[in-house]
Design a protein around this nucleic acid. Structure first.
Lengths: 241, 241
DNA sequence: AGAATTTTGTAACAGCACGTAACATTGCCC
DNA sequence: GGGCAATGTTACGTGCTGTTACAAAATTCT
């Protein structure tokens, strides 16, 4: 799990450091904190850090420059915290190479979500390697053509999938037997992270099941795993034919 | 890299000119500066400028008119600096044809981000180098003659394209398999940047598809990528025959 | 077991992106 | 100036996606 990752918080404000440290520790992360660029560098030299949460404004060294420096030397992911929520800042942040960006004041849960998302993006999800390059994936008679982006049913009829349905199905078919959370699916199929009460994946699953399951009420291919997400249970081969 | 681009700063305030010059030089750009419209024109005639940072208010010649003039003669991108941050200004700025817009006072880093963004939009577009000089581009039987500006169909009929259609098709054919946003296409084919609710590219695509797609409702050559833009999906060769 | 709570399925609706017809505008030629 | 061709704008239809609300199912609590 991504829990167990080591996060470094860099902020000159002691209260924020403490608050975030406690909050993130409670959520299963190992935490270090630094008050400025020097401390940060010191910690980076002595510990293996998986992600850095960096305040943009700090007396002495500015978060942006630190971030730029970091980017030059390592590829440890960075989430930048900044005061104003202007678009401009976002642009700058991402320009500089931050992996994500959060405007203060923010909800700690939001930070948590971003952290998860960034770590997930970085560490990447298992992908059955034999399926990596084959242009056509087959499962239970179905054929999913990656390059042409269509799905052929067992009896040879082309089933029209919307882009979103196709992307979701592909995310599954590339990772058979792996339980994928809604968050992971959102990330894989839409490239975004979940908002609160986000049910979009549920809906997309429903729609997909209507097209590929013999009985959408008793799904055989994409099964629900309560409290976890969904699994693609068919065996998948990269066979061309 | 876009670093190494040559930027012209036009502002009547010496301090600002110097500040920006130093700052941008430090970030790897070649800089020229002008105090008014005349100096600007002089420099434009003697050097190859990649981007202009233009102050809106200047004694003598107003930045807006200068910008409008510029647009009439060249497609060098312009970032406009203005005092008030009103929406109105933004709209005016972009209508006039500025590529971006920044309200004073601004953070130099912000300007840097905009500059990078504009330059990227304009020049960083991948262009399949082998196609760069060949006078005739071939794809799926079609032949696009760059120098004579005509298109020949697979059966050898000349298809008459308007200038705009030709420019758009060329922008695509030089970058096969690359997803191009409407903004990029506008820039590549018309040399201007998008206004709000700009659908002109959509229309031009529709018109182009009518001329080159077998079935304009099921386009095979120029495909739509939802939320992103369009892609030219045919393979392109620079071969003459 | 039955009640309360959580989680999932899904209908209904809202919003946006895209295609495109029809109209407006622009620039050009006679 | 009037007519024309090219291009841009507006308006509307369509399809896809996400949100909300509620029903159904699974789980936990008593």
């Amino acid at each position: 799990m991504s829990t167990d990752a080591h996060i470094l918080i860099v902020d000159d404000d002691r209260d924020i450091r403490d608050l975030l440290s406690r909050f993130l520790r409670k959520n299963g992360y190992r935490i270090s904190a630094a008050a400025d660029g020097n401390e940060m560098k010191h910690i980076l030299e002595t510990a293996r850090i998986d992600l850095i949460v960096l305040d943009r404004v700090m007396p002495g060294s500015d978060g942006l420059s630190l971030c730029r420096e970091l980017r030059a030397t390592s590829r440890t992911p960075v989430i930048l915290l900044t005061l104003l929520g202007g678009d401009t800042d976002r642009i700058i942040g991402l320009e500089i190479g931050a992996d994500d960006y959060l405007a203060k004041p923010f909800n700690p849960h939001e930070l948590l979500a971003r952290i998860k998302s960034v770590l997930r993006r970085v560490s990447d999800l298992p992908l059955q390697s034999s399926l990596q390059k084959s242009p056509v994936l087959s499962f239970g008679g179905w054929k999913l053509d990656r390059s042409r982006r269509y799905l052929e049913s067992p009896v040879g009829v082309l089933v029209s999938l919307t882009d979103g349905e196709f992307d979701l199905l592909l995310a599954f078919a590339e990772r058979p037997q792996v339980i994928l959370s809604r968050e992971q699916l959102l990330d894989l199929s839409r490239g975004r992270s979940a908002a609160a009460f986000d049910r979009s994946i549920d809906m997309q699953i429903t729609r997909l099941r209507r097209k590929i399951e013999a009985d959408p009420e008793q799904p055989e291919i994409i099964k629900t795993v309560r409290n976890k997400g969904y699994v693609f249970t068919s065996e998948v081969t990269g066979a061309a034919e």
